[in-house]
Design a protein around this nucleic acid. Structure first.
Length: 571
RNA sequence: GCGCCCAUAGUUCAGUCGGAUAGAACAACCGCCUUCUAAGCGGUAGGUCGCAGGUUCGAUUCCUGCUGGGCGCGCCA
């Protein structure tokens, strides 16, 4: 079952389906491997099976019976495939008009649907280390993508601000505090020191647990100190989110669910799901070797307990179509158990919850972890990237005013880092390497931004911006390189929908690389032949090429926006 | 031991709801700045798609086994 997102794809599928035997929505419409074969291809395998004929026979019959339509000019059979050629004028019109009006992607797809996305969600009192970039950028990209498709998105930062870890910090403060001025670096150092000390003296662990128990019991001193740690941490995190352009809809940490936990535990006990094991409260789950723990033998709650409460809160408040947890793969077991538990509690919406997992960011081939202290900070990598871009601009574009340089250097530097984290599939581990993370050429964020800046530069030089197709003679777009660009634009809707369905932003990242490459090939033709430039002599041709350029620019801008990457007009 | 994930060019990665000659980028080599920004473009070279079976008209894609690597497996999150 596939839904087609452009009228051309629908027309091609219908032309084949009209021959009988299969529904248009069951036909895959794709681009042929080589442009000389055609613009859209439909394989006749399924339909041939249904009709008990050979695929080539069916393809031949469909091609022979084909009559041109407003959108499709011709159909030819090539073995088991029917290859269609599009009517170029009509296609240019649909695709350019759609891109200029931001309506290439089906923006009504998510109408009336809500998607909760839990992403980022760092622990307070710890650094935002570089490895946090992965989940943060993937989650933000998904939020932006679903928004573009018309979904109501609730971006949630489920701050890790509760649990034994925070008791340990209070214990560390009691031993070695106070620390002034207080910032996340100081808090993180306390945490690392406490973990190191705990290795020497296991009794410290109990100290940490005792402090968390005091915190959970509402001890005013513990609460006040915890609140301060939380405020200091959030201020730091927010600075980073601002740089990344992230604005959460909900910042509700684990602590927010604390009042819900006693009644939740009562309800679970009453349901008969829970049992006691070695002093802890657990729930046994089908096909799981280990139970899920909800309360320690000390009587304090756990991550899983608060996750149940948070899931119920999200359902009660948002009635989500999907509830996504963008969290690293290491927590796969936890989420599998959590969702099973929600199901056993009778929540029919449990199967709308998805763990959107991603691979590790490794540093020097090691897993980075705050508690070990072997971290590279996100801010430090940002700073390196900005400096690299600044140097490059000084060489390439020395006339750019200094204030503008600072802004663009940040946009491009951050863009490079964000793109490097979004380009591989989620599941892949990525090794941190500064040159790779801040790649400025080849398949990179800056390459996309550069292509966008070139489009913008052409528009600037042309004077008036193209806002519509009135009076534009699209028949002037006669070059195959221009057509190749339009064909690529035609694939944007499907790329966006696929990215959203699979929660895979890299689909968009790779689509944009292809679009930028196609545009760059076209653009470069003008280097050798002035008649092939967008800003050529002939006014009517210039208008048509400007419209196509504007469509590319808009699509790059929109696509980069979905990835959470800025699209500067010059660089 | 059990579970989950990964394995494609020297390197980093696309392609995998089975389908037409497996694509980019980086690195190497050769070209293109009187050029709308060369952060670019063209070309050459580089692949037994980890191994072995199986299903199929057809497998890099699905299934099984194996090898190699990663992660996880009750009181952290």
């Amino acid at each position: 079952m596939a839904t087609h997102h452009t009228p051309l794809h629908r027309a091609a599928a219908e032309a084949v389906a009209a021959h009988g035997g299969i529904a248009a929505t069951d036909l895959k419409v794709e681009a042929p491997p080589r442009p000389e074969l055609g613009d859209l291809a439909v394989g006749c395998f399924a339909i041939a099976k249904a009709r008990k004929q050979s695929p080539a026979e069916v393809a031949g019959a469909i091609a022979a019976a084909f009559r041109p339509t407003e959108l499709l000019a011709s159909a030819t059979a090539a073995g088991p495939f029917v290859n269609f050629r599009a009517q170029r004028d009509a296609t240019y019109r649909w695709v350019i008009d759609g891109a200029l009006r931001g309506r290439l992607v089906p923006g009504e797809l998510g109408a009336g649907k809500t998607i909760c996305i839990d992403y980022g969600s760092p622990n307070i009192s710890k650094h935002l280390a570089y490895h946090h970039i992965r989940g943060t950028t993937i989650g933000h990209a998904l939020a932006q993508t679903f928004r573009a498709l018309g979904y109501r998105v609730v971006g949630i930062n489920f701050l890790g601000d509760w649990g034994t870890t925070h008791g340990m910090l209070l214990a560390a403060w009691a031993r070695w505090g106070p620390v002034e001025p207080l910032d996340v670096t100081a808090l993180n150092a306390l945490y690392v020191r406490f973990n190191a000390a705990m290795k020497q003296d296991p009794a410290l662990e109990q100290e940490g647990r005792a402090w968390f128990k005091r915190l959970e019991a509402g001890d005013p001193d513990a609460r006040a100190l915890w609140q301060r740690f939380r405020d200091v941490s959030w201020a730091e995190f927010q600075g980073v989110y601002d740089i990344l352009g992230i604005d959460y809809d909900e910042v509700r940490g684990e602590s927010a669910y604390e009042p819900d936990l006693p009644p939740l535990l009562d309800r679970l006990a009453a349901s008969g799901l829970t049992s006691e094991s070695q002093g802890a409260l657990v729930v046994e789950l089908p096909d799981e070797k280990t139970p899920i723990l909800l309360r320690t033998r000390d009587g304090t709650t756990l991550y899983a307990t608060r996750d149940v409460a948070a899931a119920e809160y999200r359902w009660a408040n948002f009635h989500f179509t999907r509830s996504l947890y963008v969290v690293d793969r290491g927590q796969a077991l936890h989420f599998r158990q959590l969702f099973k538990l929600l199901g056993r509690m009778g929540h029919a919406w449990a199967d709308r919850c998805e763990h959107v997992q991603y691979g590790l960011v490794k540093i020097n081939n090691q897993r980075s972890a705050s508690r070990l202290g072997n971290v590279v900070l996100m801010r430090d990598v940002f700073a390196i990237a900005e400096t690299m871009v600044k140097d490059l601009i000084a060489q390439i574009n020395p006339e750019m005013p200094p204030g503008r340089v600072a802004e663009v250097a940040r946009q491009v530097g951050i863009g490079a880092i964000v793109f490097a984290n979004l380009a591989p599939q989620r599941d892949k581990d990525v090794d941190f390497d500064i040159d790779h993370a801040v790649s400025l050429e080849g398949d990179s964020g800056p390459y996309l931004q550069y292509s966008h800046a070139r489009c913008a530069s052409i528009a600037r030089k042309a004077g008036a911006a193209v806002t519509g197709l009135d009076g534009v003679d699209l028949g002037r777009l006669a070059h195959d390189a221009e057509w190749a660009v339009a064909r690529r634009l035609l694939e944007f809707p499907d790329a966006v929908v696929r990215a959203a369905d699979a929660c895979e932003p890299h689909v968009i990242a790779h689509y944009l690389l292809g679009l930028a490459a196609e545009f760059s090939r076209w653009y470069t033709l003008g280097n050798g032949d002035a008649a092939l430039r967008v800003l050529c002599e002939d006014a009517a041709t210039r208008r048509a090429r400007l419209a196509l350029t504007a469509a590319v620019q808009a699509t790059l801008r929109d696509g980069l926006g979905m990835l959470g990457i800025a699209a500067p007009d010059e660089m």
